[in-house]
């Protein structure tokens, strides 16, 4: 890994200047091309072909964690943040990277105002009653 100069310095982006520790793993980047402020309840799902993320040298351990966590059960951004103990902004960047490399996809939540009809809200009420 360090042969191509991607050792420790790999995590630091010259342009970014000093970085807060957790943001070091996003290489100082605070936004990612594919990511557009993912909602806390956006659902992250691992793609079936994302088999061996740990063998991918471009991925950090945190990227690999996300791919593994979202394989059997989809996870929201909030759940990933809590599970991995990472700030939401960091999770957004990491998920954005994974979307770009097509290892995961993200389902954005439908804003209730755009729901086609009331049936989902009725389902929510019935579901709560049945708890």
């Amino acid at each position: 890994m360090s042969a191509d100069g991607q050792g420790r310095s790999h995590w630091f982006d010259d342009e970014a200047g000093p970085v807060v520790r957790p943001y070091a793993m996003t290489r100082g980047r605070t936004t990612s091309a594919a990511q557009h402020r993912l909602d806390l309840i956006a659902v992250v799902v691992t793609e079936p072909h994302a088999d061996d993320p740990e063998d991918d040298p471009t991925l950090s351990p945190e990227h690999v964690d996300i791919v593994e966590l979202c394989r059997d059960t989809s996870q929201t951004v909030a759940e990933l943040s809590a599970e991995l103990d990472l700030p939401i902004g960091v999770v957004r960047v990491l998920v954005g990277d994974l979307v770009e490399s097509e290892l995961v996809h993200v389902n954005r939540p439908v804003p209730p105002a755009e729901l086609p009809d009331e049936s989902i809200l009725r389902d929510v009420i019935n579901g709560l009653r049945a708890l």
């Binding site: 970014a16 200047g17 000093p18 100082g28 605070t30 809590a82 599970e83 700030p87 902004g89």
Partner: peptide
């Protein structure tokens, strides 16, 4: 209940609104 956190600048903005963030100016 699970906890989720975000890093903030002192100004109360999320960190991903700024580019180079200095540790001393952040809170969660």
């Amino acid at each position: 209940p699970l906890r989720t956190e975000e890093l903030l600048t002192e100004a109360g903005r999320p960190v991903d609104d700024t580019s180079g963030v200095e540790a001393k100016n952040t809170t969660t």
